[in-house]
């Protein structure tokens, strides 16, 4: 037996999951299990109870309407990557999800699980932050919606309380023809990112950027928005000169170093990834602006 002892419970509805979380001592939700099960096998965690939410069908699904992409918390990462609907409305998802683990882990891993685990190097929290996503959380006091910026509290810490679960993530979509770019550096394919940058871009008919969003994973304690770089780009003509100025903002990130890369190194890699992501975004913007 690798994991420490716990009692397993399977919930078949959202109210049942909330009830179990409220009633049970020291309980953890089991979503896709691609991080939690590894942490249990390594005995980093010792929950007394596991509440499995894999048998709650209403937690899975992808819908797009009124300019919003809605993804159920238990939707598998592979299902999002493979969705033609998502690819058409928000092509950055498929591009980014190719970097999320491996096929075997994407088949089980969920978007809600990734957001709640909040690994600093994880790509999905960075995508949610990039889109100013809204996270719906259900608990014994009812439902509440949390903006992604407030959902992220600190290193691997979210605003979700112990008796709550994430049910839905809503992404406001950018207009058709927006530019997008995702660049990541890791030692091997599928490894945790040393630095990853996601960006979205819109410009006017003269090529001046009118709207830009940039998020960075793997560098600071959580995914962050690079607001200084966004502000530096607005009104400028998209191109190497503007992108170099934006990349310089990476020097000010509150970077955290570890055995895989120092804080300084991560900031330098982030600057390179930012230039690449912005260049891709520019080349992908619809030419008619």
């Amino acid at each position: 037996m690798k994991p420490p002892p716990f009692a397993y419970h399977s919930a078949t509805s959202i109210p049942e999951a909330i009830q179990l979380l409220s009633k049970l001592e020291n309980a953890k939700l089991l979503a896709g299990g691609q991080s939690l099960m590894a942490m249990l096998n390594l005995r980093y965690l010792h929950p007394e109870n596991l509440v499995d939410i894999n048998r709650i069908p209403e937690l899975s699904g992808i819908t797009i309407d009124q300019g919003r992409l809605r993804i159920g918390a238990m939707t598998r990462q592979q299902a999002i990557k493979a969705s033609a609907e998502v690819k058409a409305a928000a092509p950055i998802f498929a591009e980014t999800l190719a970097y999320v683990g491996h096929r075997q882990t994407r088949n089980r891993g969920t978007i809600g699980g990734s957001l709640c685990h909040l690994d600093p190097a994880a790509e999905l929290p960075a995508l949610a932050l990039l889109h100013d996503a809204m996270v719906t959380v259900a608990g014994p006091r009812g439902e509440r919606k949390i903006e992604m910026a407030a959902f992220i509290v600190d290193y691997m810490t979210t605003a979700v309380q112990a008796d709550e679960l994430v049910t839905l993530i809503e992404f406001p979509l950018w207009r058709a023809g927006h530019g997008y770019g995702f660049a990541e550096f890791a030692r091997r394919h599928g490894d945790f990112a040393i630095a990853a940058v996601a960006c979205l871009m819109e410009s006017d008919s003269e090529g001046r950027m009118t709207r830009v969003a940039i998020s960075v994973a793997g560098v600071a304690a959580t995914a962050i928005r690079l607001t200084a770089a966004e502000a530096a780009l607005i009104g400028k003509v998209a191109g190497p000169e503007a992108f170099a100025a934006a990349a310089a903002c990476c020097a000010d990130i509150a970077a955290v170093g570890d055995v895989h890369g120092s804080a300084e190194y991560r900031k330098k890699v982030a600057a390179v990834m930012l230039r690449r992501a912005l260049t891709d975004a520019q080349s992908r913007m619809a030419k008619n602006g």
Binding site: K2, S10, M37, A38, N41, D52, R103, N107, R108
Partner: peptide, 27 residues
């Protein structure tokens, strides 16, 4: 490895690949 890194325990569950060390039998 028993923590989802090496892939040796890969199997198919309902026709899609999964790490059998990262699933519980009861699931």
């Amino acid at each position: 490895c028993e923590h989802g890194v090496c892939g040796a325990c890969t199997i198919l569950v309902d026709n899609v690949s999964a790490r059998s060390c990262l699933m519980l039998a009861v699931q």
